[in-house]
Amino acid sequence: MKALTNRSKIAVDKEYTFMERLYFPAIIKGMMITISHLLKKKATLRYPEVQKEFAPVYRGKHVLKRDEKGAENCTACGLCAVACPAEAITMTAAERKKGEEGKYREEKYAEVYEINMLRCIFCGLCEEACPKEAIFLTDEIVKTSYDRQDFVYGKDRLVEDMNKRIDITKRQKKY
């Protein structure tokens, strides 16, 4: 057929040269290549003894952030749930009572906040949707488990521990 453009270039050569006909030159060449890898440094990462450092923007397990005083940022606006393509997030909102100012930053808070980690596709849209800097994905991976029920992460596993704060400033940087 007529060519469509003038940029085409034939990329194959199917004619065997005499040496190629003999099988052996190519075989010996190939074997030399493989044997040269015998002493090369192995590429293997010895997980779990050695852990690779993930990119700072890696989308792994979620965290519900607290502010500097330890109050939860989440106000249960539900944007993350709406933004979730897998519909993995559910929450119940509650009104903050008097005396709980140290626990919750805004007047509303999430009484129940659950992410179904088996449903989650780690797309990061919830993080983008959050207007309150509450939910972030971290560079931790979600652990495997034996039971399907184990994967519904409630607030006990999502809210960050004040003693082990997770640094998310790198995620927010837009370079």
Partner: peptide, 13 residues
């Protein structure tokens, strides 16, 4: 027996 979360999971997982 075992569930591995992630979409797709990392090789680590």
């Amino acid at each position: 027996d075992v569930y591995v979360p992630g979409c797709p999971p990392r090789p680590e997982q």
